[in-house]
Design a protein around this nucleic acid. Sequence first.
DNA 1: ATGGCTGCTTTGAGCAGA
Length: 258
Amino acid sequence: MRVASWNVNSLRARLEHLSTWLGQAAPDVVCIQETKVEDAKFPEGAIGDMGYRTLFFGQKTYNGMAIALRFGVTAEDVKYNLDGDDAEAPRRLIACTVDGVRILNVYVPNGQAVGTPAFAYKLVWLDRLRLELATHHRPDEMLLVCGDFNVAPDPIDVHDPARWEGQVLFHPDERAALARLREWGLVDGFRAHHHEGGAFTWWDYRLGMFRRNWGLRIDHALMTAPLAARCTDVWIDRRPRELERPSDHAPLIVEIGS
DNA sequence: ATGGCTGCTTTGAGCAGA
């Protein structure tokens, strides 16, 4: 099974790129973040034409989650948002089970700037995600938590760590919150297979950051040990980032053996 | 570099993103 994760930065603006990339990568499951579309306007038909059925949980303007399933792939036990979220809560999580693997697709709050209410909300949200794991899951089950975490774990995940140290996306408090998730019982799938630097998933639109490869690794595929044992690779697919008017994120691809 | 791009919004300047 091939599971991908991609922050598309508006699904409707990215439909052509999605179609092209689905043809290239042929994933079975795609965890999509930042659809930026309310459910009544979700482009179900267009994605159906690409050969995928979609579970979606969106809102107008911001956030919004979806999981696309290649025709023939079945999903069970769909869950929306964290325990305790009401109907007005920002839509940042959608989960389902595919072929015995529980998949949590997450969009962690950006945090705006250190010291703001948004930054505090980000830390709380990460802690609530950890509570979600502790409440509903066990480290010995087949579990994948993937998506846009908006946190670079280590200096190797940042193009210029000295410049980013203490800033949002690379602040000690965020990194500690991410580390607590891993300590519950999750492995960083990309790092389990790749030890090199310069491997990023997001590049700012400005100043030719992608061309210079000045980026951050803030999208992750975290998995429990039994799933990590089945995972043959996690890799970053840079192809969609090279197109005209791309998402600022590249997709992450998780290869799971049987 | 208190900016730089991009997408969205009852359309257009302001916001959020990362």
